[in-house]
Design a protein around this nucleic acid. Structure first.
Ligand code: FES
Ligand code: FES
Lengths: 154, 154
DNA sequence: CAATAGCGTACAAAATAAGTTCTATATTAA
DNA sequence: TTAATATAGAACTTATTTTGTACGCTATTG
């Protein structure tokens, strides 16, 4: 339940790898080779993340992608939404949607609350968290994280 | 992303309906008629929830199902797990599993933390919350809820 | 003992997700 | 200017999961 897709896992893998040299451009081919992932799939994931503003891209020789922001400013919710679409527990839970399913039920308002609870719970987790070699729970991580590097300062 | 299945939505619908007469036995046929849902599907969902101890069942004439506990003591996480299986963000995030995917990645420990964050965020939401006609956010709901009726007193 | 209602399993159809392929466009360097 | 490289975008196929249904079995009631 609440499973993320494989592509999202790949995405995190790719981003954490790119976080290791934040300046240089990494190409899909390089990343594919380094991480032992199929190149077309890596390319697809990179495109998705680029679309959502997580990456800068550059074409041509010596081109590739790099992080558009520091890892501490990229929230896990952005990565999830980039690859899997908007974060909602049912379609009915989307901000302005009402229930469009075959059956009609009056639960969308409730699901919207559940959705909000999940979203606020994980939004403080940033790419930085995944870059740690051994995570010892979230409390320790958040304690170590300065408020200035909080992702999604909305 | 993080979508619940339709069956889970049905499940909540069914449980909230049953919460209205906690004493009597509701049959799959009755529930199907009341909620305008296909009977075989209702039966399937009821079976799943019964397996996980959310319901009491009784066979034969005048038989059916009823809630095994008061709505305030049934956590949304139990309902989710009953219908969709264990709550984990990846298979690798399960307590004792390591990454069994084709690719090998060192993220399970991180996902496990994310999983725990989500789980603790929503575990206080009970069936009672879904029985409210107009939810006004979670804070109000939790304020109104007495600590004694907290689900999952683990 | 007949009618009812859950139990368990198995199966078919539908919807998603994963992975691939192809053409076009931009950038660089020789 | 041209060849090589690398992303952009879309379409497509395949695999997997979810959804919905069916059926024979068992327990309970009157
Ligand atoms: S069917 Fe849309 S929320 Fe229940
Ligand atoms: S592939 Fe298992 S957690 Fe990344």
């Amino acid at each position: 339940m609440f499973k993320i897709g494989m592509l999202t896992d790949y995405g995190i893998l790719i981003l954490t790898h790119m976080a290791k040299n934040p300046q240089g451009w990494s190409s899909a081919a390089e990343l594919s080779a380094s991480l032992n992932l199929p190149k077309p799939t890596v390319a697809k994931v990179l495109k998705l993340m680029n679309h959502h503003g997580l990456l800068d891209s550059h074409r041509g020789k010596q081109g590739g992608y790099r992080l558009s922001r520091s890892p501490g400013r990229i929230s896990i919710t952005e990565i999830l939404e980039a690859i899997e679409g908007p974060l909602h527990v049912t379609d009915c839970a989307l901000p302005h949607a009402s229930c469009q399913r075959i059956i009609q039920c009056d639960l969308p308002a409730h699901w919207r609350v559940v959705n909000e609870v999940i979203h606020s719970a994980i939004k403080e987790i940033s790419l930085d968290f995944f870059c740690q070699s051994k995570p010892c729970g979230l409390v320790g991580y958040l304690a170590r994280t300065s408020p200035s590097s909080t992702p999604n300062p909305s």
